[in-house]
Design a protein around this nucleic acid. Sequence first.
DNA 1: ATCATAACATACCGTTCGGTACAATATGAA
DNA 2: TTCATATTGTACCGAACGGTATGTTATGAT
Lengths: 193, 193
Amino acid sequence: MARTREFDEEKVLEAAMQLFWEKGYEATSLSDLTARMGIQRPSIYSTFGDKKELFETALRRYTTSRAAEIRARLQGHSSVKQAFAKFFEEVIAAEYTKDLSNGCFCINTMVELAPHDERFEILTREHQLYLAVIFQETIERGIQSGELEKETDAKSLAQALIVALIGLTVMMKSQPQKSFIDNAIATTLTLLK
Amino acid sequence: MARTREFDEEKVLEAAMQLFWEKGYEATSLSDLTARMGIQRPSIYSTFGDKKELFETALRRYTTSRAAEIRARLQGHSSVKQAFAKFFEEVIAAEYTKDLSNGCFCINTMVELAPHDERFEILTREHQLYLAVIFQETIERGIQSGELEKETDAKSLAQALIVALIGLTVMMKSQPQKSFIDNAIATTLTLLK
DNA sequence: ATCATAACATACCGTTCGGTACAATATGAA
DNA sequence: TTCATATTGTACCGAACGGTATGTTATGAT
């Protein structure tokens, strides 16, 4: 009964996410978005609402898929120590490999928007809490299997590892020597015992 | 021989620093700056150069005084463990006390500008490296006094604590329960032994 | 084939952006 | 007191901002 949509909503949202991830909210203009998404301005507004709604949708997409990815990676090793070591190693390698490293979209948003917009304060907090739960479950698996000490405080340890993950992700934005990060994480991971 | 300046360069720079610290680079407009600094636009340009130069000057002022403050705090306790515990505790308390917490100006800049501007990549990296040296010296003092184990790798441990400091500072922007941060830091500080 | 309708492209809205030209003002050396 | 000069306030610059009105185009149910 009417003209059919010519773009794939998933694809243009993915493009918007990449752009916001690279440049942040303020530094990304509507012109940047139309260029990258390959659609016109009114199409953005009719499909996603205004700039901030689009940003929120993009961020939700990111956090959902990122959490699933992390969960999968941690479940991919029988050894919990090895699972965390590999995971951190891959996070580090990803930043040092790609020429342009964007870090974590959620962390970027925590810094840029959470302090001035409660919606993003909540959204970013809940993502971190969810990651902490994933970490905690992994640690508990290690306790159950006997790999980790029975007395381990799984929750506190998970929270410490989340803080380390955030810290290393941010620190890498200043491109320190890789040994700095490697040392820091190796030391932190000795908490798993 | 000419009209005398009517404002205190130090004071208006301090005001600019506070504003950039609160809002970041992009989100702070020249109008915001003139309002907060209490001087007119041409005075900013003739005294500090353009917006980015002013930002850099403000950030340098921040990092210098912040490093001196941290060094002093860590030297203020004979016990190294207690020095770090108190220091982290104060960082946490500062964020939960003030209604508007700005976190760390340097960390904010690492996230917003370092990935897109080499000048700030270098500036922020060197600040973190300097803080790591301060941490390392403190840890070495603890080794020397016998408070910490002789085998302690002071450098790696210092780097791990810097990563934790960054992580907690960023994490607090999402206003998690205080117990999350307290647990994480308590666990991380068990690395001091 | 007609036509109501939704997506399209274009062109524009008022506002705000970073930055500056310019004239008025105040100063101290002469 | 005069005058060269640096600082001030105002008013403006073109460009870019987020957002929208409007007319054109393509669609599928009738």
